[in-house]
């Protein structure tokens, strides 16, 4: 939410997707992919927070993140 936010590394996202799919990316797809990633991360953190609260932890621990990872990924399966 900070104003002076650094942009995300566009090249990195493009590289990752290109390596996995072995296809070229059109010009601005990476923005939308990053948007999708943002939504995923939001879901992941929300679920992890819920899980942590259920487990009675104070912050979000790695355990709760690992537990909800699979569920969140399943939500974002196209």
């Amino acid at each position: 939410m900070a104003a002076g936010q650094k942009l995300y590394p566009r090249g990195t996202v493009k590289k990752i997707v290109r390596a996995h799919s072995k296809r070229n990316l059109s010009k601005n797809v990476d923005v939308l992919i990053f948007l999708d990633y943002t939504l995923f991360l939001q879901t992941l953190m929300k679920e992890a927070g819920i899980n942590a609260k259920h487990a009675g932890e104070r912050g979000i621990s790695a355990k709760s993140v690992k537990k909800v990872t699979e569920l969140s990924l399943a939500k974002f399966k196209g």
Partner: peptide
């Protein structure tokens, strides 16, 4: 959650999850 601090392990788990996410998304897009 009040404490918005994420320790290293949590961050590692998130990184792992995001790696998987990108892999999955890339496969789907492919």
């Amino acid at each position: 959650s009040k404490t918005s601090k994420l320790n290293k392990e949590t961050l590692d788990a998130i990184m792992q999850a995001s790696d998987w996410f990108f892999e999955q998304v890339s496969d789907d897009l492919d």
